[in-house]
Structures are given as structure tokens and as C-alpha cells.
């Protein structure tokens, strides 16, 4: 079952500290950019309004300041709408993993569908990592999905990934379409057993 081509076992690079609780998907991609029938352009819409001042010039938003591939966020990141445009935008901007205190569920599911780990740490650890990146943006940061560990410079943090997500990423089976399509006959059995499909 393992698919090595799709496995995401570790993500190494540098971080982008993005502070604040309850950052919603309307901030990540404003709704006016959802009127496209593909995800191709989403990268340039990531935090489009938050990155700009009223006159349209780029401000000091972390995405304008840092260029890392691991986003470091706080509580309830990605709350709000189910739009996959949000993780698509972050992925196309260059995000390969997100480390945070907690994630909204649909957002975390969408990340998993794209092979982006969402890894949780306690608030103190997140603050420490964000501060470290703010002080030294080039500090190497590694997310080890298999060992559930985040390493920042020399400091190691025990992290939490969730069994299903970990399994999916490590084994490369986060694309569930093929997996479930191969048992379409089982789905048809369930369909037939449900009383309401007859009514």
C-alpha cells in the first residue's frame, strides 16, 4: 500500500512566524478570489488583503518578510469556510508544512488532502519557535512527521500529528480517491443496505 513517491516523512527548511489566534480562511484567501474555476492562481492571493496597506502597498506581514516553507501559527488556524483555496494558496505560495497550537478541522483535512502536514505543539513551544525565527530567520527548521518531532536549530520539540494523518503522510496514502475507488463494490453494498436509498 505504501507509495514512496507521495510519502511526506519530513519537511526541512526555514520558518514563517504568523502570530494570532483564530486566523480564518477569509483572511487566508478573501472570497473575491474564489471566482476562478481552477486553483492555478491561488498562490498570489495568499493573505492578499492582510499583506497590503490601504493604499495597496505591501506591509510588514510575515509573508512579505519571511520566505520559509514551514508556517508557524497559533490557535484555531484556518477556521471558517471549507474552501480548499486556503491551503491551495499557502501551498502554491511555498508552504510545505504548518506547525501550530491547533487547527480547524476542515482546514486540517484539506491540508492532508494536499500532503501538507499540520503539526501541533503547546502554546509555549509555538511562541518559543516563533520568537526564534523572528530573531534568526535563517534558523533551520525541520518537521519530522514519522517521529512527531519539530527541530529548530539545536532544539527539539515533541509534537503531535494524529495517527491517521501520520499514517497517511508517512505511507504516502493521503490521496484517498484511488484508495476508496478500488473498493467501489463495498460502497455499493453499503448503499444497498441503507434503507433510505430505496425510498
Amino acid at each position: 500500500m505504501t507509495d514512496d513517491r507521495k510519502a511526506v516523512r519530513r519537511v526541512a527548511g526555514t520558518g514563517v512566524p504568523l502570530r494570532g489566534d483564530d486566523i480564518d480562511t477569509d483572511q487566508i484567501v478573501p472570497a473575491r478570489f474564489l471566482k476562478e474555476v481552477t486553483f492555478d492562481n491561488m498562490g498570489k492571493y495568499a493573505f492578499y488583503d492582510a499583506r497590503r496597506d490601504d493604499d495597496g502597498s505591501l506591509n510588514d506581514h510575515p509573508l512579505n518578510v519571511y520566505s520559509g516553507n514551514v508556517l508557524v501559527v497559533n490557535d484555531n488556524f484556518g477556521c471558517g469556510s471549507s474552501r480548499e483555496h486556503a491551503p491551495q494558496a499557502l501551498m502554491r505560495w511555498g508552504v510545505e508544512a504548518i506547525v501550530g497550537e491547533s487547527f480547524a478541522e476542515i482546514f486540517a483535512d484539506n491540508c492532508k488532502s494536499l500532503g501538507i502536514p499540520t503539526v501541533t505543539l503547546d502554546a509555549d513551544a509555538v511562541d518559543e519557535i516563533q520568537t526564534r525565527i523572528e530573531e534568526e530567520p535563517e534558523t533551520p527548521l525541520e518537521v519530522d512527521v514519522e517521529k512527531e518531532r519539530v527541530t529548530v536549530g539545536e532544539t527539539e520539540y515533541d509534537a503531535n500529528i494524529g495517527d491517521a494523518q501520520k499514517e497517511a503522510l508517512v505511507e504516502g496514502i493521503w490521496d484517498t480517491t484511488a484508495l476508496m475507488r478500488s473498493s467501489l463494490d463495498l460502497a455499493k453494498e453499503t448503499h444497498d443496505e441503507l434503507p433510505y436509498t430505496d425510498w
Binding site: E167, T176, L179, M180, S183, L186, T190
Partner: peptide, 9 residues
């Protein structure tokens, strides 16, 4: 429930 998947879901 159709089945348990190998990824635990």
C-alpha cells in the same frame, strides 16, 4: 461505514 482504511480513517 464501508470499511476501515489502511491509513486509519
Amino acid at each position: 461505514t464501508v470499511q476501515e482504511l489502511p491509513n486509519g480513517q
